[in-house]
Amino acid sequence: MEHQVYIKKSNGETELFSFEKLRRSLRSSGASNETVETIVEKIQGQVYDGMSSNTIYRKAFSILKGKHKSTASRYSLKRAILELGPTGYPFERLIGALLKERGFNTKVSVTLQGACVTHEIDVLAEKDGNVYAIECKFHADARATSNVKIPLYINSRFLDIQQQWNSNPKNTTHLKQGWLVTNTRFTADAVNYGKCVGLTLMSWDYPKNNGLKANIDSLALYPVTTLTTLNKREKHLLIASDVILVKELFDGKNKLVNIGLSDRKIERVLNEVQQLCGSDCN
């Protein structure tokens, strides 16, 4: 029988540990029911009052990695995105790639003139004659949230750009909407404000079933930081050479050679790449 244990969250608060929540997160990473129950059983025998949620994650990840590396990669997605920092540019590249897979023409890091001042736009996306200005709010701390001040600021910038764009007779497209994307979460006020002014918001799990995690999983657009066969230094070397996505390594043996990997390790990495994104690598 699963016993009640209170664990410490990353923000210092305590909460009742949910074995069912652990099961859901493992299943969503693609773990089989048998693997899920094996991990839950082991965690149940080790968890205690006051244990940190991070320690529980590491234990589950370690077991999962020993059974199936690509499943462990998907399980580590949230932390892998945090590792894309410290700058926000790799995250912007990831968002640009997500939109491109959804049929948008995208540009990353664009300077646009507003009615009043110039603005740096993280991602500019166009589809069917409509243009969208996307701002990416990257956090290196999973505890961070974007409060209402962020969408207030982003929306004011968007309105300045929109006024200039749509009044310019040389533009053949319509600047329709601003978006704000973060890798963590929005406060309730931020979400309500976005709904009120028509600013599209996307966070780790918002909108429901269409948040960042759901989109990355459905498109298999995993960042290289998810790869369990690479250490932190090797991941950062790839990011420094502008390799952000796992799929960029599918035919990228030279990119792995360039960061000093042996032939044996390259084979292991490429095997994990194939398992992780499969036919979506092409």
Score class of each variant (00 low, 15 high):
M1Y: 02
H3E: 08
G12N: 00
T14I: 11
E15R: 15
L16G: 01
F17H: 06
F19R: 03
F19K: 10
K21H: 13
L22F: 00
G30T: 09
S32H: 13
S32R: 02
N33A: 06
V36R: 07
T38W: 09
I39F: 05
K42R: 15
Q44K: 15
G45D: 11
D49C: 07
M51D: 08
I56V: 04
K59W: 09
K59D: 09
A60W: 00
L64Y: 06
K65D: 09
S70N: 12
A72P: 00
R74K: 08
L77G: 01
K78W: 06
L82E: 12
T87H: 11
T87D: 11
G88Q: 10
E92M: 07
L94M: 15
I95Q: 11
L98I: 10
E101P: 01
R102T: 11
G103K: 08
F104C: 06
F104Q: 04
T111W: 04
A115Y: 12
C116N: 15
V123W: 06
A125I: 03
A125E: 08
E126P: 00
G129V: 00
G129A: 05
N130S: 12
Y132R: 00
A133H: 08
C136W: 02
K137D: 01
F138N: 03
H139N: 05
S146G: 01
N147K: 04
N147C: 10
N147T: 04
L152G: 08
L152C: 13
L152T: 07
Y153I: 08
N155C: 11
S156W: 03
R157E: 11
L159Q: 14
I161K: 00
I161S: 02
Q162T: 05
Q163T: 14
Q163H: 14
N168A: 08
L175H: 04
K176L: 14
Q177R: 03
G178I: 05
G178A: 03
T182H: 09
N183P: 05
T184I: 09
R185I: 03
T187W: 13
C196E: 13
L199Q: 09
L201S: 01
L201I: 05
M202C: 11
M202Q: 03
K208C: 07
N210F: 11
G211Q: 10
G211F: 12
L212A: 04
L212M: 05
L212T: 01
K213L: 15
A214S: 15
N215P: 02
D217E: 07
L219A: 04
L219W: 06
P223S: 08
T225D: 08
T228L: 08
T229F: 04
K232Y: 12
K232Q: 13
K235F: 01
K235S: 05
H236E: 07
L237D: 13
I239D: 00
I239A: 01
D242H: 07
F250V: 14
D251T: 12
D251W: 12
G252I: 09
N254Q: 13
N258V: 05
I266Y: 07
V269M: 02
V273E: 01
Q275N: 10
L276R: 02
C277T: 05
D280C: 07
D280T: 04
N282E: 11
N282T: 11
